[in-house]
Design a protein around this nucleic acid. Sequence first.
DNA 1: GATGAATGAGACTTCATTCAT
DNA 2: CATGAATGAAGTCTCATTCAT
Lengths: 204, 204, 204, 204
Amino acid sequence: MNGAQERPLRADAARNRARLLDAATEVFTTRGIATPTEEIARAAGVGVGTLFRHFPTKEALLEAVMVRRLEEIATTTAQLAADAERPDGDSGDGSDGSGNGGAFFAAFRVVVDRSAGKDEFTRALAAAGVDAHAALHASGTAIREHLARLLAAAQRAGAVRREVGLAELFALLVGTTTAVEQLQDDPAARERVFTVVFDGLRPH
Amino acid sequence: MNGAQERPLRADAARNRARLLDAATEVFTTRGIATPTEEIARAAGVGVGTLFRHFPTKEALLEAVMVRRLEEIATTTAQLAADAERPDGDSGDGSDGSGNGGAFFAAFRVVVDRSAGKDEFTRALAAAGVDAHAALHASGTAIREHLARLLAAAQRAGAVRREVGLAELFALLVGTTTAVEQLQDDPAARERVFTVVFDGLRPH
Amino acid sequence: MNGAQERPLRADAARNRARLLDAATEVFTTRGIATPTEEIARAAGVGVGTLFRHFPTKEALLEAVMVRRLEEIATTTAQLAADAERPDGDSGDGSDGSGNGGAFFAAFRVVVDRSAGKDEFTRALAAAGVDAHAALHASGTAIREHLARLLAAAQRAGAVRREVGLAELFALLVGTTTAVEQLQDDPAARERVFTVVFDGLRPH
Amino acid sequence: MNGAQERPLRADAARNRARLLDAATEVFTTRGIATPTEEIARAAGVGVGTLFRHFPTKEALLEAVMVRRLEEIATTTAQLAADAERPDGDSGDGSDGSGNGGAFFAAFRVVVDRSAGKDEFTRALAAAGVDAHAALHASGTAIREHLARLLAAAQRAGAVRREVGLAELFALLVGTTTAVEQLQDDPAARERVFTVVFDGLRPH
DNA sequence: GATGAATGAGACTTCATTCAT
DNA sequence: CATGAATGAAGTCTCATTCAT
């Protein structure tokens, strides 16, 4: 959709952009998305003007933070998806009667772990009238694709029930993230949440 | 220290308070919690002053809305918990093809259905520095108690795996709510989410 | 100017009026004139409505408080003025070369002592666009008259310099009040202020 | 803890700060301290935001206005105090018909003239819970010191009674200011007030 | 006649965004 | 290109006054 507007970007400008993104990620996560723009500029060690040169809107900054997170996650899921599709993908001999879908469940965990705090951004964007799904299409679909492939592979291997579709997989991903966020101080309970969800995903 | 502050409340005052709460619930849910206070007053058909007489702070209003929701939910879960504990509680003779724990799963659905939008409030309050858990203790524990009883009954009846504790039940409740919110336009997928979670909760 | 509008006032109404005046005097003095009207009503043990029935405006209440204070002062100065005019007025045989004007200086002290905090009211009224002098004419002139008589007597007796007029006497009264208010914790210094002003008033 | 916070201040910022201070002095004095903040911003030709960038609180603005006034007064009194201490300080050989202590009385007049309206600020700050004395210590003590030196010099020269201390000098300064403010339209009476106070201060 | 809930103008302050330096 | 001061719309809350109970 937008493939021609990425200019090389001067060295210092690129450095500032990165700093801003880091600072924003940190600040939004710890102090909430209502934190004043100026705070973020300060945390990044630049002036507000610079911030607005890079991100014409606070919303745009929010979006960029989210995109970067998703891109990072996408990198990991891509790796896992690739592994899962190798001849002897997943793991073991495939004779495992329960199937196993190791890569699929590993990816599920990665997404959940990396998404901590993410849905606050989604909500914020939604509240701001942005269609997050559309805005994040570019990198969002990368994950979507990888997950689709992982899901298909896991279903083929009999590790995941056939009726589960991509839509509810996404919903479950988000939901599990939220659930897990509530249990930050209770790792055992956290683990039991994964157990429930994963068992629920297996064929019955 | 505060034993005499709950006065009967004049008729009109009570009516306005209720209107305010209704309007706030409606407006916060549809237009987001960032909606100006004045909007809510207008929606309730009163002046801002009245709003602030009843709820000295926007945060206090948010809290009151949440408390009321929880109270409503508590009423329903209380009923279900009571049913589940009757001699022949739950679904009777076990011949019930769907297995038992019916009251438990029914309560789970009720809480999820009634909680739509609720966790946005929780977040908002948290961001505002309010300890929602503390603030909501009174009615919060009512639900907590009912759910604890339902959970125990369901586990006794063999409908829910023994290792599941109250903490993760709550987390799953919140997580499922979030998941389901993402699927408002796809009832079938919504249903499949419930299937996954419920199956995951059953003994394996 | 308004001699026909004073109705007898029912017993309880009169009691409420008095209570309000007392409470207002107390509250305005201790917490400042910016104190909400409601506070005063509460201090008086009545509802705001009652307050506004008696005093149609906050300003009117302020004014009434001031008037009452002045009336109290007027009562005292009237007594002193009367004393000063008796044949053998003032004191002693009149042969006192320095004159003495005891009543005059006594009145000066009384006014100053009784006026503590008063000028905040004057300022407040002035700021509110009220011509305090006009508003307070009724009882204000009572004091004015008594002081004029005392001043004249003291000048006749040679106790006060002839060139001093009523205008600067008033200004000095207010000024000395202010000065003395600054020295509440230093009675000796307070006394020295009186010494300076009184000596300055004597013929030179 | 705060050693680096006084930055040079950009040219335009400094200009705006000065304008704001001028406008505030003017507006507070003529229209009272209850004047809306926005009015002051308008009078200074800047937006409200600018005002609040410079003075984070209305109270802070009030304080700054007061500090600046005191600083101006301090400059003048410093000059007078220095003059009074030169070998042949004050008025020289004593042949000066007006007697001596000239610098002292000149300073007294300067402070009074420059203080018009000042104590309204003091009151406002006090009402707002600010310890004006503490807040104004820096420049406040400058004046205090100069006046102490002037007082000592005048007493040494026999122009002022020995028993007068700094405390009552201050009280008289404030009191005379108040007195004089009442007589704005009657310069002759104003002058007589000075005569009374000054004569009262001379040895008796 | 008393009460206190309701009203709403207006106060103070914040913050995303623009623009002179 | 970076900076941070300026902007002003908008938000939350207060309080004198009115009016239903």
